[in-house]
Design a protein around this nucleic acid. Structure first.
Lengths: 338, 338
DNA sequence: CTGTTAGCGCGTTCAT
DNA sequence: ATGAACGCGCTAACAG
């Protein structure tokens, strides 16, 4: 392995000078600078990153914690983060919790080991009380998922408004019996979305009905299950707020297989505006989330925290959501006469 | 920051002993071992990973290069690799080239900087001639994408057979005018698939026809474009080999919008067995790829290379593909009378 | 079984 | 403007 010493020797200079050239120090004569560059080139020298990290106490690495990569939402998030991080001179280390508390804690150790300069939590398995202990070891921010009173920066989407506009759209189409699907119950994202749902109902003088509430709805398969459950209810809902495009896709697929017409018999609204919404038949109405903006902002905020070294602060950044009406939502069959 | 020295001091021992305990050395007395554990615990000590890497000349990190994360094929590949790597005590650093040669070279520098112990190439932007220069800096293997005569381990799928069975299925259904879609032309994966396609045609006494060949077909949008092109041909094909489920999905979506019935008027076969194949209407016939097995094998092989330190060798590992017949393929309309 | 010592490769005082 | 020397935190070789 070729080290800084080899370069210094070949250039006939000290390693201090070589180091200065590498790090673009101001006061080095052009002559020596050229000599160093020449030597570096002929030897094919590249600074050893471990040595640098040890010395600088900076690894130029950021970790992001997600439940799993293949979830399209997190996939997009990570893809954008990776690009943004690279632009800022950081490597992005992607950590999957696979929904396990232990695995999440394992990843948090990266901060202790100083393997990463900072960390972005895009999902949350453990209690904030547990996670907050890691704050001593380096900057930590949340992105997407959040904990209201955590004293760290949080970059998030306005989920309350998201739940609100999706529901309002269904209400405006005349629906009054609206099913509500949601995934994790601890998740603040899910809780806020539900708040928005309830807020819209309230504006129309309606109450949240437990019988129309479906839990653990994440995947296509879950969507299919939900359809079968609601299809055999006495007073089936005329619309479904799915909380996710995959769930909506599964629900629609099952509905079609059972002769239930979308949106004539049943309106379905997704969440995320994933690709699947555009290829399903009918195309799925949904809520668009500005994932890329959120990802870029998260990287930006974390990089600043790493540089500033100040104590964690309670900062909030919020991005708006947008309703996209396609073909899977329409007038309520019960109000068709109006 | 608490270091090994602090632990040694508190335990009243030398840092060598502490180091031995950390690394599970055999000959340490139970008594001192307990003292060390005690001290580590009260201080909350965790070894600094940069220092370890510098000393051991091992970072316990593996990089994998892919074009982009959101491509479902690579998403699955990476997800499986991450899990396999973690099991083996390695971190997986995911690098996106975004189809750029320069970006790919940038990522290869990680090997020079010794930031990773080894690297998996799952896609290839630069010529092998260029990439092979990095072989000096650490073990490099290919997974999925490949270069026939590279003298490194290659873990791949039997794409020739994949192209063959997909095409044979269409031929058996009576199709004789079969369109062929493909993405990158340099890609050996694509070339092998085409070989399989041609092999099947030949068995039926047919030639590859350029007029039925469509290039740059990757996405849903591309699939839509291909449909419109082939739909206005004088002698339109009765079946399409798409080379990707996304392309198939786009094609089917466009076909339905234009009143072309799948598979009655046109048979479409995908490639990958992605989730989308199960939610489209009709469900897409496709080729299943054992991505997880390939990912695990790749990690295993690379970890072995890292340990053995021997010169790069020409090893080949190949996994079989499987035909999955669903609803998007059927009898050729031209042969319906037979 | 345990402690002392010497670096790993780099950046950075502190002199000059 | 440049070089000598020290130390980041850790492991390994050598004594004992």
């Amino acid at each position: 392995m070729v080290t800084i010493n080899d370069v210094a020797e070949l250039a006939g200079l000290s390693k201090s000078t070589v180091s200065r050239v590498i790090n673009h120090y101001p006061h080095v004569s052009q002559e020596k600078k050229q000599k160093v560059y020449q030597a570096m080139k002929t030897l094919g020298y590249v600074p050893n990153s471990s040595a640098r990290s040890l010395r600088n106490k900076k690894t130029q690495m950021i970790a992001v914690i997600v439940p799993r990569l293949m979830n399209p939402f997190f996939g997009q998030l990570i893809e954008s983060m990776e690009v943004a991080a690279t632009e800022q001179g950081y490597q992005l280390l992607i950590c999957q919790t696979m929904y396990s508390k232990e695995t999440e804690l394992g990843h948090l150790e990266l901060l202790k080991m100083k393997q990463v300069d900072g960390m972005i939590l895009a999902s949350l398995e453990n209690e904030w009380e547990t996670i907050s202990e890691y704050l001593t070891y380096g900057p930590l921010i949340m992105c997407n998922e959040f904990e209201e009173d955590a004293n760290i920066p949080i970059v998030k989407l306005d989920q309350i408004h998201g739940g609100y506009i999706a529901t309002k759209h269904l209400l405006e189409e005349g629906h009054r019996r609206i099913a509500y699907c949601s995934g994790g119950h601890k998740s603040m994202v899910a809780q806020h979305r539900k708040l928005g749902f309830k807020k819209a109902l309230k504006e129309y003088g309606l109450e949240f009905e437990e019988r129309y509430s479906f839990l653990d709805a994440y995947s296509i398969k879950d969507g299919m299950r939900v359809f079968h459950e609601l299809n055999q209810m006495e007073e089936p809902p005329t619309a479904v707020f799915t909380g996710g495009d995959e769930v909506a896709a599964g629900l629609i697929t099952a509905a079609k297989e059972n002769g239930v017409r979308i949106p004539k018999d049943l309106s379905v609204i997704g969440f995320d505006n994933q690709v699947v919404t555009k290829i399903m038949d009918p195309k799925i109405s949904t809520i668009e989330q500005p994932i890329q903006l959120m990802a870029q902002q998260a990287i930006k905020v974390l990089v600043e925290k790493i540089a500033s070294k100040q104590d964690p602060q309670k900062e909030r950044y919020e991005f708006p959501l947008k309703l996209i009406v396609r073909e899977s939502t329409g007038r309520s069959p019960l109000r068709a006469v109006e």
